[in-house]
């Protein structure tokens, strides 16, 4: 559905996007995960043709270059900022962006009504966006990206700065879109979101893609072993007889199969007062790949 090959964009000496290549399959939710400044948003802007690429090729839905207006008809972008007109109502914003994407008449009215329902704003449709909460504006922003029913949806950090209630609403909307078979490209620096929503994830840093695969495959390849953390009661008389490290209070044991290791320890007479198994996640993967955390 989306083919990107050797995409590059520089601002002076800064290489914002540096030879990025990936494919997004039809019906797939594809995540671009990376810290702020990794090049995710620039990649999206290149993808919608707002920015011209220094080099590389982009093909969307078999249409080719997104600098062609016809190609962009297949795209729906929800930018990082809500990017709405505060002095228009929610309904007017939807109607305006719908018209810009070629909708008119009855079809436009139907799609606007659908989008208002999706955003949960049908009862606030006549209110100016200025009066909406941040979460409501985010939901409306997503609705504006979807109002013309595009096959390819580009979501740029859609939950940044959103309250938990609106975040859940957004997740539910995105999951509904996944079920409806939409192709979604989702950028985020929240690894939990990528793990929850994305079929495949590309980990990006300094304009390059460091790793790309399904979440389990990334965890397996770059996540390392799980970590068992336990407090023991009573404290061991000879900590050197135990696997892992003992700091006088907590025992830490890395393990490929943590449950089997816990069973083995219990069988050897170790008594746990607390037990916590920390499985590897995308944060661990990013740390492994870059030596930094996602929030650094």
């Amino acid at each position: 559905m989306i083919e990107i090959r050797d995409l590059a964009k520089s601002y002076g000496a800064l290489k914002a996007v540096d030879g990025v290549s990936f494919d997004v399959r039809r019906g797939e939710t594809f995540g671009l995960l990376g810290p702020n400044g990794a090049g995710k948003t620039t990649t999206l802007h290149l993808l919608v043709g707002v920015l011209p690429a220094d080099r590389g090729t982009i093909r969307i839905d078999g249409q080719g270059d997104p600098t062609r207006p016809e190609t962009r008809r297949h795209l729906g972008l929800a930018p990082q900022q809500p990017s709405l007109y505060p002095d228009l109502t929610g309904e007017e914003n939807l109607s305006f962006f719908g018209r810009m994407s070629g909708l008119a008449g009855k079809k436009l009215a139907e799609r606007v009504a659908w989008a208002l329902d999706l955003a949960g704003l049908a009862d606030r449709r006549k209110d100016r966006v200025r009066a909406y909460s941040g979460g409501m504006q985010r939901r409306l922003s997503l609705a504006c990206a979807l109002v013309h029913d595009p096959p390819v949806i580009l979501l740029d950090e859609p939950t940044a700065g959103v309250d938990p209630q609106s975040r859940n609403h957004l997740f539910e909307s995105i999951e509904a879109l996944k079920r409806a078979g939409r192709t979604i490209l989702y950028t985020t620096h929240y690894m939990e979101e990528a793990q929850r929503l994305c079929d495949r994830v590309a980990i990006m840093d300094h304009g390059k893609i460091l790793a790309l695969d399904t979440v389990p495959a990334l965890l397996e390849r770059h996540g390392g072993r799980s970590l068992i953390e336990a407090e023991l009661e009573p404290a061991p008389a000879d900590p050197s007889s135990l696997p892992g490290t003992w700091d006088g209070r907590t025992l830490r044991v890395p393990a490929e199969r943590p449950l089997e290791e816990v069973a083995r320890l219990a069988a050897s007479g170790v008594r746990f007062s607390t037990l916590h198994v920390k499985r590897p996640d995308l944060e661990t993967v990013f740390l492994e790949l870059t030596g930094r955390t996602l929030r650094d």
């Binding site: 802007h45 707002v50 962009r72 008809r73 930018p79 810009m100 070629g102």
Partner: peptide, 14 residues
């Protein structure tokens, strides 16, 4: 600066 230009340019608007 509000980002609406970016959104508009992702539509067929030239």
């Amino acid at each position: 600066t509000m980002g609406t230009y970016g959104r508009l340019r992702s539509t067929p608007l030239t």
